[in-house]
């Protein structure tokens, strides 16, 4: 048995080493850094490095920029996640209803944004959303609507970011929902039809509840993904205007790599992780009822 255990450990070792180098050690490092005022001055002279305890966290709590970044991030999560789930569900169900030979084409078209580079997508959208030359405003003009300054006004900018994020994200959910939908036995729909359930009742009483575990999983993935919003605002708006699109991750990046205040940036990273853990914990303990078979 002892020999077996050591053989097992040997197999696990490579993964553990990778995890240690890229996850555990950085995690502990960040946790340590967040308790210091480590910054560009401490690089020059280690005498400038002080352990300041929880001071970075206290500052964060009174930091208006941090609160604004939290709000921005939450808006994207709270608006974006339900929108993504809704579009994933609707597109998955709609694709099923179109003729088989067109299905692949539509599925691919809706999935392409998922596999495209975020930066490339953000740049494309910057052109699409351009106030004077963008296709979006051109179409709005055809409809007789005004030409809003999408990325220039604080409220619209966060909306534009959310739209781009959702548009890029929902195709993934669509594929997952499609697969889960195929797992629902046809007999259930036959039974429901005989019992008198119409199209809408079959959708609301069978399809949606049967997909609930899948949608729950997607919600978790989307929340954790959107919580780490970074590339879209970084490329589209650089966090502006007036910091209205600065997400928490973007704020961390700016503190860390623009202002060289690694201690403060680490505190943001730790806070982000903590909230994410809290969310996962709540999610795990509130998933009541049916869990699939």
């Amino acid at each position: 048995m002892k020999r077996k255990r050591s053989t097992g450990a040997l197999f696990v070792l490579p993964a553990l080493v990778l995890l240690a180098v890229f996850v555990f050690i950085p995690l502990i490092g960040v946790l340590g850094l967040s308790l210091t005022d480590f910054g560009v001055y401490s690089l020059a002279d280690s005498a400038n490095l002080h352990v300041i305890g929880a001071a970075n966290y206290w500052h964060l709590l009174r930091d208006r920029e941090a609160w604004q970044a939290l709000e921005t991030t939450l808006v994207v999560v709270v608006v974006g996640v339900p929108a993504t789930l809704f579009l994933s569900l609707v597109s998955a169900l709609m694709i099923e209803s179109i003729a088989e030979r067109w299905r692949g084409m539509f599925r691919t078209a809706l999935f392409v944004p998922v596999v495209c580079s975020t930066v490339a997508i953000a740049i494309s959208w910057r052109y699409l959303l351009n106030t004077r030359f963008g296709l979006v405003n051109h179409l709005l003009a055809l409809l007789g609507l005004g030409a809003p300054d999408w990325l220039g006004s604080p409220h619209l900018a966060i909306l534009a970011i959310t739209i781009v994020v959702v548009w890029k994200g929902f195709g993934y959910g669509m594929i997952i929902v499609s697969a889960a939908r195929k797992e629902i036995p046809d007999e259930l729909y036959d039974a429901a039809r005989i019992e008198g359930a119409g199209v809408h009742q079959r959708l609301l009483r069978i399809t949606v509840p049967m997909l609930a575990p899948t949608l729950g999983l997607l919600a978790l993935l989307d929340v954790s993904g959107y919580w780490q919003l970074f590339a879209e605002p970084y490329v589209l708006t650089q966090g502006g205007p007036l910091g209205s699109t600065t997400s928490l991750l973007l704020l961390m990046y700016e503190r860390g790599f623009r202002w060289w205040r690694w201690g403060a940036a680490s505190a943001i990273a730790v806070a982000l992780t903590a909230v994410m853990w809290l969310f996962a914990w709540v999610q795990r303990h509130t998933r009541a009822g049916w869990r699939g078979e």
Binding site: P185, D190, A191, G289
Partner: peptide
């Protein structure tokens, strides 16, 4: 007539019970 207007009930081979209910 559609199934719901035929006044029939069916029992399926694999029961077809709704697993989430």
């Amino acid at each position: 007539l559609p199934p719901q207007q035929r006044d029939v009930a069916m029992v399926f081979q694999n029961h077809a019970l709704y697993p989430h209910m």
